[in-house]
Nucleic acid binder design. Structure first.
Lengths: 328, 328
DNA sequence: TCTATCTATGAAAACGGTTTCATGATTTCG
DNA sequence: CGAAATCATGAAACCGTTTTCATAGATAGA
């Protein structure tokens, strides 16, 4: 591999001048510029990024944290972030926390060793107090997940609203026995707020839900199937169910059909996210503007990095949209 | 940030000795080791990875190329690769080519600038001759896609077999009018071989397909919907359709139901990949062992990097499995 | 006991760039 | 016309590690 020294020698100039040409500094005559360009061409020279990183103390790399990339919500997020980052000359390191606190902390050490210029978290597994110390090592942002104590830029949706809109819709369809099922992450404001929204809508309508109707630990299609069985076994069955993701909703839908239930007559289902599968099976759902969120977050992050802005709270709130389909 | 020099000073030793402790070299007395450890602890020291990269000429980073991360086939692949890499101390840079030749080449420049130790390609957009030159800059592997001319390790499935198994299944179900629909990538052996398998099965059964039945450019659910409309408009309609992915199959299925067609009586559909959606909508499909592929590929790659093995052709062939469901 | 080998450590070079500083040539301005 | 500002270039310092080389003491083998 040719180094900048080789180029300099071939061009009959100093490393400094070559570096100037590479970095488009002013104060290089066109003639020398041409000499350097030719030499670079001839030697097939490419600057070594490790050296550059070391000297410039920046990596042009951004880490994105997701629980699992196979979750369509997060893969859409990453798709958009990746493309946007690439357009602006950044590359993306993917960190899958696998819903594990340890794994999240492991990956956070990345920032310490200066392997990335910044971090975007789309979910949080640990208490914020465990994450906060890492802010010393570089900018951190939240996208999707949010937290009161986190003094960082945050792109989010008010999940109280999300839970409210969905539940309200079910109530308007005449339901009073509405189950609620979600994942179960103690550190997640998304989870707790959405539940608050559900309760709020019920309270407004003067409905008191049975405790039995609150189902947790539901993330995947298979969890959805399990949730259906749980519902089917209940003495006092709900007539509708609010779910935390389209995947879980799809699992419920699938198992309900297996058992010859009629959707929505025997059970109305509302999903969350508006993933492709929702359209496929005719699922009413609450769309989150993933693309906008991802772009806003990545844009902010690059801004912060490039202008060395101090990390401070700055909330960007986006809006939901209810997508009515056949399942309610 | 504390540097190795700071640690050395605090411990009253040389940088060399500190480095030895960090890298677990022999020939350090336990006493000095303890001194160093304490100093590192006290200063909250973490080695700077840029410096280390520069000196060691390796990055502990592997780039994975996929067309789009939102395609479930590839997101599953990346999920497994990411976890496996992380276990072995490597991190993963995600490169989405967006089915674009330019984008693929752009990302290939990464390897040139030594930003990664190796490359795993799961798809190929350019002719191999355009990719080959990059082999000079570091190890490249193929996983899923394959190519005769590529002298690199390859984890793959024989897609002739894939096309054959699916088509053969439809023939065994009594179909003789079988449409074929797929993406359309000229550089892709996966695409061309699968088509060969389709033709082979038909020929064996003495069937000559109508040219009208060969549908291309189908990647997504929406493409599937379009494909259904095309089929519905045909004079000589097929009674079954072989598709290149479960997503496309799902699109066909969805639109067929919309038009009140009966699946499989009016139209049998076979998908490819066995993604979660296949189980959901009861799609017969051909399962690819994604997890195994991903692990084999990442394992090989790390081996190659760590033992500095020369890049040469080495084919690891895995097998399909037909999953029979209600759509055929 | 004398040499060869092994153990333990540090000084200095190396990795490949960018940035600072110095210097001289050229241009601008009063 | 002389001083100040601007332009153009290179030498050397610097980023923070790892690796090579040198050295000296300890141990083993003859």
């Amino acid at each position: 591999m040719a180094t900048i020294q080789d180029v300099a020698k071939l061009a009959g100039l100093s490393r400094t001048t070559v570096s100037r040409v590479i970095n488009r500094h002013p104060y290089v005559t066109d003639e020398k510029k041409r000499l350097v360009m030719n030499a670079m061409e001839e030697l097939n020279y490419v600057p070594n990024s490790s050296a550059r990183r070391l000297r410039k103390q920046q990596t042009e790399t951004i880490a994105v944290y997701v629980p699992r990339i196979t979750n369509p919500f997060f893969s859409q997020m990453v798709e958009v972030m990746g493309n946007y980052a690439s357009e602006r000359g950044y590359q993306l390191i993917l960190c899958q926390t696998s819903y594990s606190r340890n794994q999240e902390i492991n990956y956070l050490e990345l920032l310490k060793t200066k392997q990335v210029d910044g971090l975007i978290l789309t979910s949080i597994e640990n208490e914020w107090s465990n994450i906060e110390p890492y802010m010393n090592y570089g900018p951190i942002m939240l996208c999707n997940e949010y937290n009161d104590r986190a003094q960082v830029p945050t792109v989010y949706l008010d999940q109280i609203e999300g839970g409210y809109i969905g539940t309200r819709h079910l109530i308007e369809q005449g339901h009073t026995r509405i189950a609620y099922c979600s994942g179960d992450n103690h550190a997640s404001r998304v989870a707790s707020d959405r539940y608050k929204g559900y309760k709020k809508a019920l309270e407004e309508a003067g409905i008191v839900p049975s405790e039995e109707w609150i189902l947790t630990n539901a993330y995947s299609i298979n969890d959805g199937k399990r949730v259906f069985s749980d519902i089917a076994k209940m003495n006092e069955r709900p007539t509708a169910v609010f779910t935390g993701s389209d995947e879980v909703a799809a699992g419920i839908w699938k198992e309900a059909l297996n058992q010859k239930w009629n959707i929505p007559n025997d059970l109305a289902i509302i999903g969350f996210d508006d993933q492709p599968v929702a359209d496929l099976i005719g699922l009413t759902t609450i769309r989150q503007p993933i693309e906008k969120m991802a772009q806003q977050a990545m844009g902010q992050m690059i801004d912060i990095i490039q202008h060395k802005l101090p990390s401070k709270k700055k909330e960007i709130k986006l809006d939901f949209e209810l997508i009515k389909r056949r399942s309610t």
